[in-house]
């Protein structure tokens, strides 16, 4: 028999698998989209929404909810899919991804249930997260704020203004997660504008840093359970991921940062996930 922990992790793996199918479902409905950065974030998002975050999908504005901001807004297929799967709205809404007057476009819109901030312009989410974390602190509220950043996104200077401020303010209720998939739109991050040494940069800015394999559900759960990493500093989780994870044809390639999703691509993607239903 599985231990409680193993059963829990197995459940999260299944949720992540279903999430990947839902990501493809949304992207196929749209005809194209950002599969690479959606799939790299899928395990992290599954663990966030089905294990870590205090949320009430039937009450999206519940004041005590934890806040999650997807700063790398182009991965909205993943956010929309995980919100649907959590019950913020019906999964059938994913078939309206990119639709006319849809709540679900390429980038998150605060009007959609469960979306905490309209994002898409890169380098915005961390500052907004600071405001949320400060808002909790000033009002004596317990909710936590988590912001997911892309690696390419870290080239935007505004992130470093925010990194400096969050540490200066000692915001232990703020966590940033870097989906470090090493690829951006036009090629490897290293080639475009390298980030190394990434962990040291954040440490130098005053953050407490951990690094994990962002596809190891057990490691992800442990990393979230261990938050905050220091009593008086913001926490940074660097999750080493694979762009396009779960679709071999798309893995580790900037060509699948954003691409068309034909019927054939969709079929291949579902086949790889082991269930075409």
């Amino acid at each position: 028999m599985l231990s409680n922990r193993e059963a829990k992790l197995q459940g999260l793996r299944e949720a992540a698998l279903r999430l990947r199918r839902n990501i493809w479902r949304a992207l196929h409905a749209a005809g194209s989209g950002h599969m690479g950065g959606s799939l790299s974030a899928a395990d992290l998002l599954a663990a966030l929404y089905f294990h870590h975050l205090a949320i009430r999908p039937d009450q999206p504005d519940w004041p005590a909810r934890d806040r999650f901001v997807l700063s790398k807004g182009h991965a909205n297929a993943a956010l929309a899919a995980v919100l649907a799967q959590s019950g913020f709205f019906d999964e059938s809404l994913l078939d309206d991804f990119y639709g006319f007057e849809s709540l679900l476009g390429m980038h998150p819109d605060i009007k959609a249930p469960g979306v905490e901030m309209s994002t898409g312009g890169l380098g915005h989410g961390l500052a907004v997260g600071i405001g949320m974390a400060l808002g909790a602190q000033l009002q004596g509220r317990d909710f936590r704020t988590l912001v997911m950043l892309g690696d390419g996104e870290l080239q935007e200077g505004s992130n470093w203004e925010a990194a400096m401020a969050a540490a200066h303010m000692g915001l232990a209720n703020l966590t940033a997660i870097v989906d470090f998939n090493k690829i951006q739109q036009s090629g490897p991050v290293k080639a475009v504008l390298g980030l190394d040494p990434l962990a040291d940069k954040w440490r130098a800015f005053g953050w407490e840093v951990r690094e994990i394999d962002g596809h190891d559900i057990g490691a992800i759960v442990d990393a979230f359970d261990a938050l905050p990493y220091a009593p008086d500093k913001p926490s940074l989780l660097i999750a080493h991921t694979v762009k396009g994870k779960g679709a071999g044809f798309a893995e580790d390639s900037h060509l699948w940062h954003v691409n068309a999703v034909t019927d054939e691509v969709y079929r291949n993607a579902l086949d790889e996930l082991g269930d075409a239903q």
Partner: peptide, 17 residues
């Protein structure tokens, strides 16, 4: 850091401040 000021203000407002 005006960009940061504006983003933080938005985040604060979402919490009811």
């Amino acid at each position: 850091a005006e960009q940061n000021a504006m983003g933080i203000a938005s985040g604060l407002a979402t919490t009811g401040l």
